[in-house]
């Protein structure tokens, strides 16, 4: 054998023939989620997130101030139109912080949903070139928004001090509702990202969908405006549960309606698990269609 390794070409062929061989099969039917594999690829997830954050804040004019600007301006508009003009009652808390508390998870949700829905198309060049668990892409899209979320949350705590709102023990539930908003964004994002690959209609529906969704979510108004018997149906919009929970955790008023919250949690769980399996089911077609 040694005599065959004389030229660089022969040595090269010898080396690549002896490389450990990895065979990648497309999943068939209802594929396992392979979450373990996802864990093994966690450095890739980290790199994707880091790349998106760098792209987002590199060569910018206002930089990270953007994370504050977006919810603050939305808060201004809501306060003027719903607080002042339509005189929607926000209970005992001032309307600006009432709106801002809801806008923090809402802004995160909209951004995360938009990014994850477009993520497969946006990353089409990588998808068509190399193998990696595709689930990394929408997950990283959802994770990137967490930085903005954290910054907006800091401002929220600042506003709490400004308005003299004393946190109640309910504040301890905040991480749960944060996780829930992440799960909601990922749950819907997975479905829409997969559909977006085949039907670009999603791209056009999305801005409109989020706009209507805002009105179907108690951001500009309190959820107790919705009649008691409709609350469970109202809770089928998981963001209703998230926003209600967020408000309760921060402001300590109006504990969330339990059936509404249960409906929201159920929907999120079903959507997320269904979305994961749907994603895996369609995964082998991405590189061909996108």
């Amino acid at each position: 054998m040694v005599s065959k390794l004389n030229t660089p070409g022969q040595r090269y062929m010898y080396r690549i023939r002896n490389l450990p061989l990895t065979l990648i099969h497309p999943p068939k039917g209802l594929a396992p989620l392979e979450l373990g594999k996802l864990w093994r690829y966690r450095d890739l997830l980290y790199l994707f997130v880091w790349r998106d954050i760098k792209v987002r804040y590199k060569q910018t004019f206002v930089g990270t101030a953007w994370a504050l600007l977006q919810p603050l301006i939305a808060c201004l508009v809501l306060t003027l139109f719903f607080g002042k003009l339509a005189r929607i009652s926000s209970g005992e808390v001032p309307y600006p912080i009432f709106a801002y508390t809801a806008l923090v998870p809402w802004t995160y949700f909209v951004n995360a949903l938009t990014h994850s829905s477009n993520s497969l198309i946006f990353n089409s060049t990588i998808i068509t070139r190399v193998y990696f668990p595709r689930l990394i892409i929408p997950i990283s899209a959802v994770a990137t928004g967490l930085l903005d979320f954290a910054i907006a949350l800091l401002i929220l705590f600042g506003l709490m001090v400004f308005y003299g709102i004393i946190p109640t023990p309910a504040l301890l539930t905040l991480p749960f509702f944060m996780l829930m908003s992440l799960a909601t964004a990922l749950g819907f994002g997975l479905w829409l990202a997969v559909l977006n690959v085949e039907y670009r209609d999603i791209k056009f529906i999305l801005p409109f969908l989020t706009q209507i969704w805002l009105f179907a979510t108690p951001v500009a108004y309190p959820s107790n405006l919705v009649p008691e018997k409709w609350r469970i149906i109202y809770g089928l919009n998981p963001m209703a549960g998230v926003v209600d929970g967020f408000r309760w955790a921060i402001l300590g008023t109006n504990p969330p309606h339990i059936p509404l919250l249960i409906a929201s949690i159920t929907v999120v769980t079903i959507l997320l698990i269904g979305g994961l399996f749907f994603f895996r089911y369609k995964e082998d077609t991405f590189a061909d269609v996108v």
């Binding site: 590199k58 004019f61 977006q70």
Partner: peptide, 16 residues
């Protein structure tokens, strides 16, 4: 081209 976040700022201004 020089400040990449102008497009986001503009979109907020358009909303206003």
């Amino acid at each position: 081209v020089f400040y990449r976040d102008i497009q986001y700022i503009v979109s907020v201004f358009v909303m206003l």
